[in-house]
Structures are given as C-alpha cells and as structure tokens.
Design a protein around this nucleic acid. Structure first.
Length: 158
DNA sequence: GCCAACGTTGGC
DNA sequence: GCCAACGTTGGC
C-alpha cells in the first residue's frame, strides 16, 4: 500500500505571499526556504497529495489561514542560482543544489482565520512545534489529528 | 520597533 | 571543535 499521507504546516509572510495570492494563482512554488531542517522535510518526506496548513507568520495577527496540497516532488530551488534574486545563495550550485522546493496547490481558505492565540489555547495542539518556544521552522510536520483540529477551528461558527 | 531565541559563520 | 559575534525569524 502507498505510504501514509503526511500533514504539514508551512509558514509564509502574507506580505510576501498570502493564502489569497495562492487562491489567485492556483499553484505556487514554495521557494526561498533556506533552513536545512525545513529543506530536508520537503526534499525527503513530502509527497504529492500531502495536505498543508497554510500559516501566516509575521502577520496581524499570525495564524492558520487555509489549506493547500503538495503538488510536486521536491526540485532544486532556482531562486538560489539567480544573483538578482533576494534568495540568491552562491553556495548552491546547479549541479549540486543546496536548496529545494515543492509546488503547492490551493485547496481552500478557512471560513474563519485561526489566530495563533487560539492554537495556543487548544489543549489538543500543544505538541505542535509551532507553539513551542522559539521555534522558527518554516516547514514542519504535524499529525492528522492536529491537522483536523485546525481545520475544525477554521470552520465558521454556527 | 523591540527583543528573545535560534542558526550560521569564522577566528582561534 | 569551541564559542562569540552576527544575522534572521517571528511574536508582541
């Protein structure tokens, strides 16, 4: 049988790229990840069809904005090769890239935005790396239970 | 804008 | 290999 579906949380600053941008574009490549742990998750563990919580960081407020889906295997992040790109990294070579990215596909925007404060208050979500002190990972695995809980919180209140 | 926490770099 | 200095992340 196929591998179990994995769930992820991916952070983006909405000033840079928000859930609305993704909705408009349909799919986007998740470029600019310059953290080895996050890269390893994308390169080694992400599979097409994995579900992603799209999280707005450095936002007012920060929080979970919607759902996306992994739409490609990892491939070299070409923005690292472009000296004019702000994510340029001279250490990444075309024949041996340091950085990778995946494509993500828009699935849905939450009926209601789930602010970080509510995630922190939810006892079911206390194990997430997101709420642990000082965590700066921009791509992190989450459990199905955590994914489902956030999706539930993102539904409009009756 | 502040600042704590973290990752990376570079001198030794 | 240690560790101080520096740059970045990200909540507030």
């Amino acid at each position: 049988m196929a591998r179990k579906k994995q769930y992820w949380l991916m952070k983006s600053e909405p000033d840079e790229y928000s859930i609305d941008d993704l909705e408009k574009d349909g799919t986007a490549h998740w470029d600019g990840v310059r953290n080895y742990q996050a890269r390893n998750f994308m390169r080694d563990q992400m599979k097409i069809g994995d579900k992603v919580i799209f999280y707005h960081s450095n936002a007012k407020p920060s929080g979970a904005a919607g759902i996306a889906e992994v739409a490609s295997e990892a491939y070299p992040d070409f923005t690292a090769f472009d000296p004019n790109d702000k994510h340029f990294d001279p250490k990444s070579k075309k024949d041996k890239p340091t950085w990778y990215m995946v494509d993500v596909k828009f699935v849905k925007k939450f009926d209601r935005f789930v602010p970080l404060s509510e995630i922190k208050e939810n006892p079911k979500l206390q194990n997430m790396k997101l709420v642990q002190r000082g965590n700066r990972l921009s791509v992190m695995p989450i459990t199905k239970e955590e994914f489902d809980e956030i999706v539930k919180m993102g539904k409009a209140k009756k």
